[in-house]
Design a binder for these strands. Sequence first.
DNA 1: GTCTATATTCGGATAGAC
DNA 2: GTCTATCCGAATATAGAC
Lengths: 197, 197
Amino acid sequence: MSYSSGTPDKKADTRTVILNTALRLFTQNGYFNTSVHDIKREAHLSIGSIYHYFKGKDEIAKALYHDLLEEMEQQFNLIASSHSSTHDRCKAVVSLLLSMTDEKPEAMAFMLHAKHREFLPNETPVCSSKPFTLMKGMVREGIEKGEIRELDPLVAAAVMFGGPIRLIHLHLDGIFAGPLVRQLPSIWDCAWKSVSA
Amino acid sequence: MSYSSGTPDKKADTRTVILNTALRLFTQNGYFNTSVHDIKREAHLSIGSIYHYFKGKDEIAKALYHDLLEEMEQQFNLIASSHSSTHDRCKAVVSLLLSMTDEKPEAMAFMLHAKHREFLPNETPVCSSKPFTLMKGMVREGIEKGEIRELDPLVAAAVMFGGPIRLIHLHLDGIFAGPLVRQLPSIWDCAWKSVSA
DNA sequence: GTCTATATTCGGATAGAC
DNA sequence: GTCTATCCGAATATAGAC
């Protein structure tokens, strides 16, 4: 858990506690069904303390959103630099998405459920965010290199990552059980078959 | 437009006006950013009139949800009865999803964005609803018949419909332009390749 | 069945002591 | 930097005339 921006978390500092609590409540009950009073209660803090760290409820959501996206972007860059073929890169991305869902389901739910437009109207939606742009870029490059069939890059990205993302949604909604990483072989097989040249 | 439950819509009755207006505002600004006063204003009605037809804001959302799901279920049943092979059925479903998005984007957005859990906590989520169950059933049958590879039915359904659904999301978020039906050939080709035996 | 006016609750945000 | 008490606006919902 690394929400602390400047200070090293010797122990869990207040800011981090607030963010973790908010993340849990936001994904559990939704942003609008979560009041600052709820966060206060669950985090064992006072209202004043929360407003000392954040200007308002939306600032908490914004901070969460940015922190999580940035963390994801770093992982994506790592993947891009440690694999050469489009096949390997995209497979690593799918693997990352599945394992992140297993390890930090709330974080994934928060980013994916894409309700952001509803309560963060001024933020760029997930689909236009850095990680997603990187995914699209990988696919485009794969088309140029001939690894992937000639398709609209967006369409190709949608079909390749759409399956895994759909499974993640099903898992987060409680429909599909079990650790998702176990499904990597079969689902990646399907995903790659759908677009490979 | 067929939201009227009992009465034939000689002209647009008040109930229908309310539902149409609410649907537009809910998808445009979100459920929680839409007040009953907003609906009142946009529908050129009075608060009292709205509360005469619905017990509260959540009842409006619930009515919308049920009406839209039922409409979709009927279409799905029609498809199931007019096609025999799994291939044709599933392709027809994808085609339907794409054309529905083109024709009634707000309706699709309302159902898909799956924020329902946030404001309709007691309703079954889309993924467990009738239409989705039917989709899953089609896939399972396809596996038994040998048209589709041996896979977990849920996984197979996720990869086959995940691509199209992802593209729909991208379209509704303004990332992917143009009529979606035009993409049917290419996206269905991909989808079927991913799971066909 | 449609309207206006009003009641009531709730939640975001602030003030200011410690 | 943490707390309590409080304010204020907004939004749901109701009452009751027409």
